[in-house]
Amino acid sequence: MPKPIRVLIAKVGLDGHDRGAKIVSRTLRDAGFEVIYSGLHQTPRQIVRTAIQEDVSAIGISILSGSHLEHFQKVINEIREQGIERVLIFGGGVIPVKDVETLLDMGVQRIFTPGSSLDEIPIWLREKVSKVDN
């Protein structure tokens, strides 16, 4: 039995909608991940500090507020500043297709937009994490 992969699911900024984050958390739990759910209204700095203290392999950020470009950039800057580039970052929420390319260029590994299959997330994440770890 492989050891569970630890992943942080976070909400950033002024965004009170966490139904999606909770559903993704439970989906990952059901796929055998250990999910740290850090709750609403986290700052980029808090998210990265949590990722460090919890020793996670990946950070998943759910954003429905429309400020995804700004917030992902801040989280990525903080990740670089703290020197934890090995931690994968992915995201989801109400993010227009036209912004997805920009986010991927920024360093986000994957964006799951509305309509994505829930089954896809753990499969993708497990494969991605095992590549980084080896």
Binding site: M1, P4, S25, R26, L28, R29, D30, A31, G32, F33, E34, V35, I36, Y37, S38, G39, L40, Q42, T43, Q46, T50
Partner: peptide, 19 residues
């Protein structure tokens, strides 16, 4: 941890209100 899948949702951090 789940006895079935070994997965878990760890949610104790959300009550810490002061960053």
């Amino acid at each position: 941890s789940s006895n079935i899948t070994k997965g878990a949702v760890l949610g104790d951090r959300i009550r810490i209100t002061e960053s």
